[in-house]
Design a binder for these strands. Structure first.
Lengths: 232, 232
DNA sequence: CCTTCTTAGTTGCAAAATTCAACTAAGCAC
DNA sequence: GTGCTTAGTTGAATTTTGCAACTAAGAAGG
């Protein structure tokens, strides 16, 4: 082994975001052990080299062990590393962002978590507040030009539900016409039962969600699609 | 210490990009030691916990030790981690992107490097080809809506030089009018000697670069500014 | 000093994209 | 049927964009 290779603390953290009470909120738990014992913190853990082929696998395992669920969306956020962030010494945390509908999370053992507004965070362990701020910034940024917010909803959703999701992420309302044209959606053009075109941002299903008014067509997301950057 | 904490290999890599021969190229060197001895690889190294306060410090030190220079731009790209990327075992490489004008790099001991087109890479050690592809994608993406390409030029540059830089990054030409209006530049409006407005994307100097035709005003970049996403 | 050449910088207009208010559609309650 | 609510569309005013044609400034050469 290389003589200069130092002993470093390496862990994987997950910023699990969900829409709750009309706001973008992060899932936090209380640390059972020092350092920062009893402090609110992100879910995280050490890599199990035998078990985890990648850091993303570690992130998935940590969430599975805590809640029993798979996140609908998961990506690496970045690595928060340095001498100052952990009292035990130089450390690196490979941070991830995960998105889930809050309903799905609650059904799956999400009671272990406390939820806090990403814009009104309490005192947190390590640099976890900074990680959450970076995650919220990433999500808001990508939301302005992609279908990322779809992963905060159940698999099928109406266009109005999706619009509310975008509005809650940004904290401001959007005109209905603008929203729909930005997505390039013309419901009439879509042939529901048929195979989705690769170019389709959303896929029309043949299902409708009927309330006590005109029923709205249900959609599901095709893939993570990009459109023109906007301020909404 | 935590009982589950495994022994992992952690290193810092730098994708140092520069414009050379009209193309976006990456700086590579030949590995002196196994694994991948003699293979082309990115500059990189281990963290020195006593010396480096952050992973970015490690990246700067690695470049300084190789070439004696500070990169004009440096940001974290992401962490490439897993069981498969290093034959010695589970490893994590905190990867960075650095930008420099090729001239400055050459003057500063850049002879240690071989330069290769990011779109025509030779066989590389580890997952370094993947890191370079990710870095090029990041740079091209940010170039489409920010002043990132300014860091590939000397501190002062003409608008035409900057336009050529954008064109070389994307490999396609741009109309002069479109380029200037996208940057929001009206040279006449700028008061050179005075303090730059915070809103200014570029700062006009009172210097001109005269060839054998009308001299062009020299600019320097104010800060990393964003503008509307475009396809150029 | 006048013409020509080259590159810098500007202008204005045609074309394209965006926005939003007003419209139609579809269901339920009564 | 009427009235209410939400879904979905349309089209015209406005804004933005792209580009060709214009002016500006210096050098070279007669």
């Amino acid at each position: 082994m290389h003589p200069n290779r130092p002993a470093l603390i390496v862990s994987v953290d997950v910023v699990l975001l969900t829409l709750r009470q009309g706001k973008l909120q992060a899932a936090l738990h209380r640390r059972a052990r020092p350092p920062f014992q009893g402090c609110l913190a992100l879910p995280g853990g050490y890599v199990h080299p035998q078990e985890d082929a990648t850091a993303e696998d570690t992130a998935r395992r940590v969430l599975r062990e805590k809640t029993g669920v798979e996140p609908r969306y998961l990506e690496q956020l970045g690595t928060f590393a340095g001498a100052a962030r952990d009292p035990r010494g130089w450390s690196a945390a490979i941070s991830h962002v995960a998105l889930m509908p809050h309903e799905e999370l609650r059904q799956a053992g999400g009671e272990v978590f406390h939820f806090y507004d990403v814009d009104q965070l309490p005192e947190l362990a390590f640099d976890h507040a900074e990680q959450i701020r970076a995650a919220a910034e990433r999500v808001r940024n990508k939301a302005s030009y992609s279908t990322l917010p779809c992963w905060l909803l159940p698999e099928q959703f109406t266009l109005t539900q999706l619009q509310r999701t975008y509005e809650q992420i940004f904290g401001e309302t959007v005109s209905r016409g603008t929203f729909r044209s930005r997505l390039g959606i013309k419901v009439g053009d879509m042939s529901p039962g048929e195979a989705a075109d690769q170019a389709d941002i959303l896929i029309a299903t043949d299902q409708f969600q009927g309330g006590s008014q005109r029923p709205a067509r249900l959609f599901r997301v095709n893939r993570l699609s990009l459109f023109k950057r906007a301020s909404w």
